[in-house]
Structure formats: C-alpha cells, structure tokens
Amino acid sequence: MITAEWKPIEEMVGYLRGHKKVLVIGCATCVAECAAGGEREVETLAPLLAMAMQNDGNPVEVKSATLERQCEPEFVEAIAEAAAEADAIVSLACGIGMQLVAERFVDTPLYPGVNTTSLSLREEPGLWTSRCAACGDCVLGLTFGLCPVARCAKSLMNGPCGGTRTDGMCEINQDTPCIWRLIVERATARGRLEDLTQVRPPKNWSNSPAGGPKRMLREDLRS
C-alpha cells in the first residue's frame, strides 16, 4: 500500500493561519490501512487541529469527512458541498488523492496533513516496511522475489556492500535487514547461488520518476 505519516501539527497550523473554515478530509483506502488518514485519524486530527489553532490565536471552525477513495473523481464529489463551505482543505490522503481534490476544488486552498512516504507492506501490527520503489524496471525475477531497489539503502544490483552488520542488518538502520543478505540466503536455500554471480549491467531508470513524470497511455482502453 501507499503509506503516509502525519505532518507536525505546527506545520499545519502555519498553513491555516488566516483561514476560518477548515475541512479535514481522509481516505478509506491506503492511508486508512496505514493509520494515517482513515476515518479514525481524521476524527482524531480534527479536534486537535481546532485546539492548536485556538492556542495559536487563530480559531477556526473545523469540519471533517472521509472519502471512500480520494483518488477517484466520483468519490470526491461526495464532499462538493462541504468543500464549497470551507475556505481551506486539509487532506490526509496520499499525494495522489490530495492533488485530485486540489484539482476538483481549484479555488479552495488544499494543504497536506501527511507526508506520503513509501510503497510498503504492513509487516506486523504497527510496522510498515518498504517493498517497492516503482522503479519501472522490475528485477524481482533476478533477485528471488526480494527487491534491492526499494530495500537496499544504495539500491545495489550486484550483491551486498561492505556495510552489512555482523548480525546481518543494514549499517544505516540496525532494525532493517541487509536485503542482499536475505537474497543470498534465499538463493542458497534454492541451490541457486550461482544465479547471483552474473554481473548485472547499469539499470535503466528512464521508466522511474528519474525519467520524468509518468504518462501511461493505453490506447486499447480509450475508445
């Protein structure tokens, strides 16, 4: 799922100074799954934000709503009335959902209530870890189903760097496993360590964000 994390309340307060009627909106999909922008988080943040604005000397009226999916136009219509009454919107959806709302209600300032951070898996209750970097050139077929692009701090393609800790964790975070250690273990278990001995050439990043904004066109779906 797409994961997101709340921005500091002070940052939101900074955005909202001068506004009077604020609509806080969430999204019931990814950001709800990662406990950043679902209905529960929206209903938690709304009063906190009202209190913070009050303490800041800029009281605002705060209303709230949680959309089924903030990245689908038909669901966004559900807040048309509330958006028309508000003079600012704070969205707890991912950057995609936020931008659709900003585009639909173009005269109402939209402010992010979260930072969109990753494409992650909920590994355990309360723990999300990266699985994909949307690099546009999937290598999972070469790496035994473990992604070195998203899960190696250096996105190495040819094995572990010298920074693997004695306990097999990554030097930049003692709780993050060296993904190349796991790839080697899985290859060994399958009796296929040999597969990892081929030198992989430089990766083509042109289908990733490095290649410019993505525009995926499917003619077969456009008629």
Partner: peptide, 22 residues
Amino acid sequence: AWTPLGPPIEFRVLRLAKKVAA
C-alpha cells in the same frame, strides 16, 4: 574494494569474483 569478512560470508568471495569479472 573487498569486505572479506562481512555477512553473508559465503557470498563475499563470489562478490570478489564478480568485481574481477567486471
């Protein structure tokens, strides 16, 4: 460079071999 004693230890010589091949 080569880190001969880092984990996964069984891969370190193979990684050296890759560098030589490269």
